[in-house]
Design a protein around this nucleic acid. Structure first.
Lengths: 233, 233
DNA sequence: CGTTCAATTGATACGGATCAATGCAAGTGG
DNA sequence: CCACTTGCATTGATCCGTATCAATTGAACG
């Protein structure tokens, strides 16, 4: 039987704010679920019925425009919180980009529990404020930056999150990592088409800034160059 | 002397969650400030030193790109909360678009007070989640929609917020209102140039969808048409 | 009446979307 | 083991929308 004690995201997720006893109580409300790649766990516009923590895997949040295009609103990693508490409808869909495991709670039960545990709500608030800052950062990118700058920004963020070991500000070692998604997802995220993304990657490769050993893997060879592109127009 | 009792946003702001006694306590921490149009009360990148509620007036949140362009991240109205609690730096600037009054608190003192008053934190959380949803909606618009759709969406939102009386879903009466900002601010918000905004307004006017009696005032004559434009490409 | 600043209008250039074709790897069945 | 399919990525050619540069109009104000 699984216990919160050996949970791999225990210290990073919102649960960190709970005492062992409270944890036990929360745990009794929820259950762990295994999600297959590509499966959607929440739908845009649906009533919000569940919330939870990502234990393992990567998810995307998406919304669709009235004319059918899909926009990715964010990428969520292990220890991130997904779902909309205290609200009737979910403003976005949540879909697994990889096989995943999540720790889920019925929304109503979670809401009630949260209201009784101020520290948990505080964690959630803190996290929401960070998410808000992040979303606003992306707004700037989507509104103003060129395709090249968008791709560069994206690659830097992915390198940071998926290959955190490889080099800091002046990291001279190539950051190598596996993308948890294909070109279409990248395009959806960056507000570009798949062709444009492809062209930019090709260009960066030909300039020696990155390497693309295969479809899903990527290496950042020249971080400084990427940073420059990300800042420029 | 001003008291919270007769505050015009008392019932809409986060303070609604406090008892008269708690309110008194919070009030003692802060003070009311009058802000002139155009004045910036918080700067992007600065340490977050104050937070507060808008009592009167309209503010914009902005961030700048590395190459100097300004992007507006959101518009805040009376009863909205501004500033970044629980965080060291502010991710955006906050500037008054009109003459305004705000009820401000030193950030550290507010943080401390909030942590002792779960209901206040709950209000703040609820508000943050709504803001997050709103920000993500804008992301979709900025990433995917045409200039025409952006302007249409914007006008609909302004009509709703600035002329709430004039017609609901099928509102056939023209919604007339005063914009609290000029073309440059609109452009900054929509991720367009001032020229493009102007052209779209001209076009909508020539099609009989809107009227622009003067620079700052606006009337939506055909709401349905705007809605159609907002949804399309 | 001239000054000033914002808004509008016009002409052109360019970036990314779109449409269409090709390339490439993994899987399938003969 | 090799033809064939299938799904994604890449590359190419063209078009369209918005930015950009530049000029004009219009309103507010001294």
């Amino acid at each position: 039987m699984n216990t919160c004690g050996n949970c791999s995201v225990r210290e990073a997720a919102i649960c960190r704010s709970l005492s062992p006893c409270e944890l036990e109580e929360l745990k009794s409300l929820g259950c762990e679920r295994v999600i297959e790649q590509g499966h959607t766990v929440m739908w845009e516009g649906d009533e919000s019925v569940m919330v939870g923590n990502i234990i393992e895997g990567v998810f995307k949040l998406t919304a669709s425009t009235a004319d059918g295009e899909e926009q990715t609103l964010g990428i969520m990693f292990p220890s991130d919180f997904i779902g909309r508490p205290f609200g009737a409808t979910s403003s976005h869909s949540v879909t697994a980009l990889t096989d995943a495991r999540i720790c889920t709670f019925p929304r109503a039960a979670f809401d009630h529990f949260a209201r009784d545990h101020a520290d948990l709500e505080h964690s959630l608030l803190s996290r929401s404020l960070t998410e808000l800052d992040r979303a606003r950062q992306w707004m700037v990118i989507l509104a103003r930056k060129s395709a090249r700058a968008r791709v560069a920004t994206f690659l830097l963020e992915m390198a940071e999150r998926l290959a955190p070991d490889a080099g800091g500000a002046y990291g001279d070692k190539p950051a190598r990592f596996e993308l948890p998604f294909g070109r279409q997802d990248m395009a959806d995220m960056l507000g570009l088409t798949i062709e444009t993304v492809s062209r930019q990657l090709t260009r960066l490769r030909s300039e020696g800034v990155i390497e693309t050993p295969n479809r899903r893997s990527l290496a950042v060879l020249d971080r400084r160059a990427l940073e420059a592109f990300a800042k420029a127009g």
